[in-house]
Design a protein around this nucleic acid. Sequence first.
DNA 1: TCATTTATGTATTGATCAATACAAAAATAA
DNA 2: TTATTTTTGTATTGATCAATACATAAATGA
Lengths: 202, 202
Amino acid sequence: MAARGRPRGFDRETALARAMEVFWERGFDNASLGELTHAMGINSPSLYAAFGSKEALFQEAMAFYVKTAGSGIWEPVDSLATARDAIAHVLDATARAFTCRDPSRGCMIVLASPQPRGSNPSISRELERHRRGNRDYLETRLRRAVDEGELPEGTNCHAIATFYATVQHGMSIQARDGASREELLGVADCAMSAWDSLTRPD
Amino acid sequence: MAARGRPRGFDRETALARAMEVFWERGFDNASLGELTHAMGINSPSLYAAFGSKEALFQEAMAFYVKTAGSGIWEPVDSLATARDAIAHVLDATARAFTCRDPSRGCMIVLASPQPRGSNPSISRELERHRRGNRDYLETRLRRAVDEGELPEGTNCHAIATFYATVQHGMSIQARDGASREELLGVADCAMSAWDSLTRPD
DNA sequence: TCATTTATGTATTGATCAATACAAAAATAA
DNA sequence: TTATTTTTGTATTGATCAATACATAAATGA
């Protein structure tokens, strides 16, 4: 199946990666088409031909972000032996991922469009859906730990998952405010120091 | 000193309070002048005559927010007897304040302009400065507790203050994502359950 | 009364934005 | 070669935005 017509003059995935960087640094609204096309090295008709719209481009950039920056954080959650190891890993990897650019950027999922009734509610809802998914993922991992006997019956998995998700979200703001990697790792340590009392039987 | 000229036809502070609500719900960029003037019940020339510019209006709205919504959270920090009580109060009051509107809004200082290199960097910097001030305020309170003997010498006040500030920031995202007051109070409880191990002598 | 001062309502300005129209370019298929 | 298909670059569109021009209204001071 050879391509008909004139071949595309740029690499789609490279352009997508550059768009992701712009959205990550500037958020959805503040990333103008001029900035995006400049970073991607193309003109706007090429952008629209390849991606459809600014919103569709963002959706793809978000998926790309999850696949690249996010996978190192969340993928090991199921494979690590204990829920404690899993959550400690999430916080540790978060501290590293949120400070992997200079200046630090925090999490694109948390910061790219924080106004649910802003200019593009569907994007805010999609990001919210994703954050909720991460929280639920932690809760599911905790429930499994209860089933496996790592944690006692009666453990409040919902509250613990919500707590650690909250810490993870807060680290995005700290990163944007210039917190160093060491400070964020310190936050992760502090959060993990609650583990024993959170999972102690009543 | 009677006022010359035609008297202002609206109450300046009432209008400011309404502007604050709009900025709080929509953020700086997404709050259009049309929305602002509609909520304030005035036309744009009156807005500019009374407040100067959209940015100046936001600065005043931010100060108003700190004075009203924020004071109940931060004011008791110095007067409460112990650092533990102070921090527990901050988290508890935060959970309540962030869910005092329906739908929940979280914190205007955290959410109104989260892109440091967005459309208005000076506003982002001002908000960041304020967040940093809150964090420093917690650290100062912890150092006082060390001086007074509540906490042992060698307590890592910087790390503990950063941790609790991070939790507080994360609660804004949770509130925006629809977390209930009870869930946020649960987050506050989880965070406080780390207290003993965080403040235990080495 | 009349000049001065300040506020208000209507209408508009220039800038910026996302998205597109259009014709030329570059490939394949017949 | 010629017709067809798709991409590219230039230029533009209509919408929306923050901010303002201007004439009128409503107060005080002389």
